[in-house]
Design a protein around this nucleic acid. Structure first.
Lengths: 201, 201
DNA sequence: CGGAGTGGATTC
DNA sequence: GAATCCACTCCG
């Protein structure tokens, strides 16, 4: 596994600094080039060990840390991995779009079970379908829907909307639902039984 | 110094598995979290460490190993993870079945692009659709289709069929196909342009 | 816990 | 669209 690497002094850099170019050899970005800059003894160079100024410069500028009385650093930078912002209502980009067959003929929209209710401002059944379908297709977690109250979600989605769940109100399965489903299974079995009988006769 | 460690069962994990989070407490990456997964003492459970009887039982039966004079084991069992047998043509169980809408009305079958050819004995277009759709939906690997010759696959699927791929002949994309697709994109862009013009006018 | 290597967002 | 930057994963 030979990595394509070139490392050399570069006149545009201060004395003692080196520029390295590494070609990515796999993945989606294979072929792209990453550039690294080194000065001697990187590990312990004060200009590269945090805390460092977050200013735009290839030469990181160290920071003087002032301690408070209790010995803790007076700062509020966060620990742990930062959570990425998430896009709410991305489904709206799909509004008015429909799948079509090979010939370009638009397919009918699917009708959803009556129990599924859309939530969020101006979210219609069309968007609901796309949202739920995507969640079922993509999500690794159980799909349970939004648990916030309908009015809270309408008025303040930025606060109450759970971006990990589709734009459907959380569905509660009651005893009634289970009974109804059992009846459907029974009916289907009867139908199969009769079909088999008819086949033999 | 209190080490920040949390170890707990996690509902997203299979039963018996635990997730541990350990916060790095020093170094450049201080504050970052490492996640470890554990299952209960699998490592040293005699009934789960090979060699194991390959019999059907939920309780794996360990094997007594007899050594020969030279100290080597008198056996030819394979090392490394055993490959599970795979079901060929499971798609045939779905033959004659169709999705229906909420009202019980059967939906039309989808028409596939002409380039896709079914392979394997008695595999029709209907089965082809189910096979390809499942592969795209479920497979983590690229879906490339069967590379064996059509006649070999028909006569000796047990030998030549690749169970990791759907029952479609490997599709080769020629320059012609790319050109045709480019034309389609161009046409779609023209249509969009005109629609936007009409909207403004 | 560090470092190589990549995905992907951001900036130019 | 390319260059740059950052965050994250994986593995020793």
């Amino acid at each position: 596994m030979s990595v394509e690497r070139k490392k050399y002094e570069c006149s545009a850099l201060p004395k003692g600094w080196q520029r390295e170019e590494v070609i990515r050899k796999s993945g989606l970005s294979a072929g792209k080039i990453d550039v690294y800059y080194y000065s001697r003894g990187v590990r312990n160079d004060a200009s590269l060990v945090p805390p460092i100024r977050q200013t735009a410069s290839i030469f990181k500028q160290p920071v003087t840390v002032y301690k408070m009385q209790d010995g803790k650093v007076k700062s509020d930078f966060k620990h742990g991995p930062q959570e990425k912002p998430k896009q709410l209502f991305w489904e709206k980009r799909l509004e008015g779009l429909r799948a079509c067959d090979v010939g370009g003929m638009e397919l009918d929209a699917m009708e959803l079970p009556r129990g599924l209710r859309a939530v969020g401002p101006h979210v219609r059944e069309e968007t609901l379908l796309q949202s739920v379908a995507t969640a079922l297709h993509v999500s690794a977690q159980p799909v349970t829907g939004q648990t916030g109250s309908r009015s809270a979600l309408d008025k303040n989605p930025g606060v109450f909307l759970n971006p990990d769940q589709p734009l459907v109100q959380a569905v509660t399965v009651a005893d009634d639902d289970i009974k109804r489903q059992e009846e459907r299974v029974c009916a289907a079995r009867k139908k199969l039984e009769e079909a088999l009988k008819a086949l033999v006769a």
